[in-house]
Design a protein around this nucleic acid. Sequence first.
RNA 1: GGCCCCAUCGUCUAGAGGCCUAGGACACGGCCCUUUCACGGCCGCGACGCGGGUUCGAAUCCCGCUGGGGUCACCA
Length: 545
Amino acid sequence: MAEKQIIARFAPSPTGYLHVGGARTALFSWLLARHAGGKFFLRIEDTDLARSTEQATVQLLDDLRWLGLHWDNAELIYQSKRTPIYNAIIERLIAEGRAYKAYETREELDTLRKEAEKQKRTFIYRRPQLTEEQIRGFESEGRPSVVRFAVPVKDYSYRDVVLDKEVTMPAGQVQDFVIRKADGMPTYHFAVVVDDAETGITHVLRGQEHLLNTINHIALQQALGYPQPIYGHLPVIENPDGSKMGKRDRDKMVRQRSQTWMKTFRKSVDELAAACGLSSARLVEWINDSKKQLDFSEQAVVMQAIGLPESDLPEIMVHDFRKKGYLREGFLNFLSLLGWNPGGDRERMSVDELVQLFSIEGIGKSSAKFDRAKLLAFNTDTAASMPAEKLVGSLRSYLAVNPGSPLNHASDADLRKIIEMKRGFRTLRELDETTRLFFIADADIQYDPAAIEKVLKKNDGFAILGDIHGILVDVADWSAAELEKRIEEFCQQKQLQLGKVAQPIRVAISGTTVSPSIFQSMEFLGRDRTLKRIEQCLALGSKAN
RNA sequence: GGCCCCAUCGUCUAGAGGCCUAGGACACGGCCCUUUCACGGCCGCGACGCGGGUUCGAAUCCCGCUGGGGUCACCA
């Protein structure tokens, strides 16, 4: 019998930007498929009409493309567009008596659950024995209903390939779960089983939160006669404090800060709602229920209203890392090591090497904390090992999500130059910030008062700068080498250390104490702009005196 | 709380009974390089959660405890 081709998938729900956990799930599934020469499918699980947005889907795809995790299905699958297919199967199950309508309201279920909790027993939902009359009654009063799957009561188990262990659920714990919601949409549990089967998925790698859900899925597969894919549940990625790193953390932070804001300024939720232009009902619901989340645009207006800057939020979105100037190659390498390793001391790997080395056996069982310092180190190494040509492309991609950067005006040739000039940089953002002095107008240089004080007002900084200006106007060959030669001569003559001269020039042309090599910087700026900046800086000195 | 999963330096981990005086990477400390910021080089600090077994021998196997996490939705 021929080996079956591996078909893996990533099935996110579009409720916001792609977060680190999701990205790792996508990466592992993608690696699994690519390693085996199989297929990798992408499916949009948007059965939650209230939380799913078109914008989130666009963002998700954009992040996945940036990471280079390309999918093989030409047509994207949207679950929301497949309701007739799900309904046909659900109707069949109902007709066969293997699924049924349930009429309890959320409140009634809540009460039942609380009662069970009080009696310290687990609430298990099993099919209630309704009479024909009761059902007619519910229907005629127009009671909304859900459809539940009548899970055959027996022991279930499956082998988890990540834990390398049997996961079991005894008969006493199975319960009838909802497969179609009152709004007519299938639940995740139902749609996922149907779609995985229909697209021939052979391997499912997903977060550990699904460990027990899988039992439900298996019960459904058995009822529908579907094959059972191989399941592996990935360990959780944690924040540095040990809590789960997920999209909820951001929301949690925004909620907390909103509460402090209301306390500090003695404002009500209504006033907060008014301040950010959201309905107060929506906001009240969100503030009081930690399970509710704002979508991205709502989050943004609330943050603005309470003055919570983006930079205060923990970076957990792939988009944030892209925006902060991380390279996809280093990010992927770092991400891959969160819960996986090829064995031995191997750590730095290209994407191709990851594909080559990946295996399910290499996935760990314990949770991992997300260490930004290590990510930074990976990024630095990745940048150092990339050819300038390729980095120009990465930089363009970075600039696309940082439209405010002056580097957007630079030519590819100039970007190349600054990349070589700043070799050793840690992030593209750092490269951006330390080289933007080349791409802004001379008049727009912001002189940092602390730099002026420390470098120019002390140690005869202004005087030295004046002398240097006198020398520079006479330099005919405006090259880094020639400039270096002339300034070294000056240092010799005056018995000065190079630093005493270089720093004043640096502040004059950049406004700060940090810039690329001073000689290369002057060459890049050119004679006129360099002299102009020194002059405008000297003017600052005479004004101050 | 019930059920479930996990457990090696601060962090990510190597380790599948003797190769372990426990290896690597990041972080941290020191030194060197240096016109700033970085980069780079060298050195150092630093862990098998605890208690019982099994074995000639345990980080590795078993049990208990402890700790951490997940999950208990008409969210995925």
